[in-house]
Design a protein around this nucleic acid. Structure first.
Lengths: 200, 200
DNA sequence: TGTACATCAGTGAACGCGCGTTCACTGATGTAC
DNA sequence: TGTACATCAGTGAACGCGCGTTCACTGATGTAC
């Protein structure tokens, strides 16, 4: 396996290993030693590239946000600006991301107290929400929705985030096992976007 | 402090100590040794009352669900059956509970893989959601709402759970620091309950 | 009421474990001359 | 082109730490007679 004394790509290899380990053991933490084992390197090697373990976690989380943002862009590209399909696509990406890498998703959104608030991570989280917000602003402009776009965006984010959390934590499974989460989100989002008539 | 050799209430004292520690260090885990220290007892003492640490955690979580259920009942008691105020009250209790004991809240809803799914815990979680569901069913019956009560209940739960999560994890603070979470929930819930007219 | 004894909730010391991090080192690489 | 040497990414062994759990024990309690 290991052919050269100098790894060459150890920095990214460690980040990847950490990300895989976070995914494997669903628990929130992973062991740096495990990451070294996975990268085929001694436990002291990471300290040539990172000051400590926290720095690696921050990198993993930051790359998670980058990936999510890229998936947002890819998923909305097919639809014209202002189309409601764009909003739906963003929500679906969000949910799918959580399902595919639940532990990373949790890490991205739950600030660990031991993790000093990393500026890059914060900025990347902000950018992600900014993307959602922009979609809603566009939608509201095109469809002349009178509501506060910021408020609607937060509501949509909240609904989808709640759905993602309850899905990956197995709470829907306990309580409403036959639920179609995406249908639920879809219908809920339509109501939040004033797309469904009042049936009272 | 400690006066008698036999503690007398050690079982509950350990559960309380664990709950306090979970609250103090916001991280998801706590140390059994710390709980013993807090209860003024040797590290071997818990094993007279619990098979292992997991059993203590399960008890803490179970009592958390019991408390939440009691708060639901207390908060809705003032309003007549079917009143929308009851639904609002349940949502407010949910959010307040999360804010007051964030780490416990996380533990209650995020199933740890190391925690064998405890039947009592599952049942208590189900009971909590059942309470929400019943409120929505009553509301729909009184107000002749045509929608699927189960679907509406899940949407409300999802919205409030998302709001609770994003609040305690500090995500709103990063992205929309001036947001009034309760206003946001209130307005969102009205839309999900078909109480706001379509303004398209 | 007094004593013998079973019961059981506590002690305190020790265990093995895996962790993050440090240390002096060594081997490979690249550059100056 | 060949050699000397600075640089730096790796090694491997060790550290101190706190953890959950086990062990033989001991002191207090309650009950039978």
């Amino acid at each position: 396996m290991k052919t050269t004394y100098h790894h060459g790509e150890l920095r990214q290899a460690l980040i990847d290993a950490a990300r895989h380990l976070i995914a494997e053991r669903q628990g929130n933490d992973f062991s740096l030693s495990d990451a070294c084992r996975r990268a085929g390197v001694s436990t002291a090697a990471p300290y040539r590239h990172f000051p400590d373990k926290t720095a690696i976690i921050n990198e993993v989380v930051a790359q998670g946000f980058t990936d999510m943002g890229n998936q947002f862009r890819a998923a909305t590209a097919a639809f014209p600006a202002g189309a409601p399909d764009r909003i739906v696509a963003v929500g679906q990406v969000y949910l799918a991301f959580a399902i595919q890498e639940p532990a990373l998703f949790r890490m991205m959104f739950s600030q660990k107290p031991n993790l000093s608030e990393d500026d890059i991570v914060t900025a990347q989280g902000r950018a992600c929400f900014g993307y959602v917000l922009q979609e809603v602003i566009d939608y509201c402009a095109f469809h002349r929705v009178a509501g506060d776009a910021m408020m609607i965006a937060v509501q949509l984010w909240t609904l989808v985030h709640g759905a993602a959390s309850l899905t990956i934590d197995g709470d829907y499974a306990k309580v409403a096992p036959d639920l179609s989460v995406s249908t639920m989100i879809q219908e809920g989002a339509q109501k939040l976007l004033f797309l469904l008539p009042m049936r009272g």
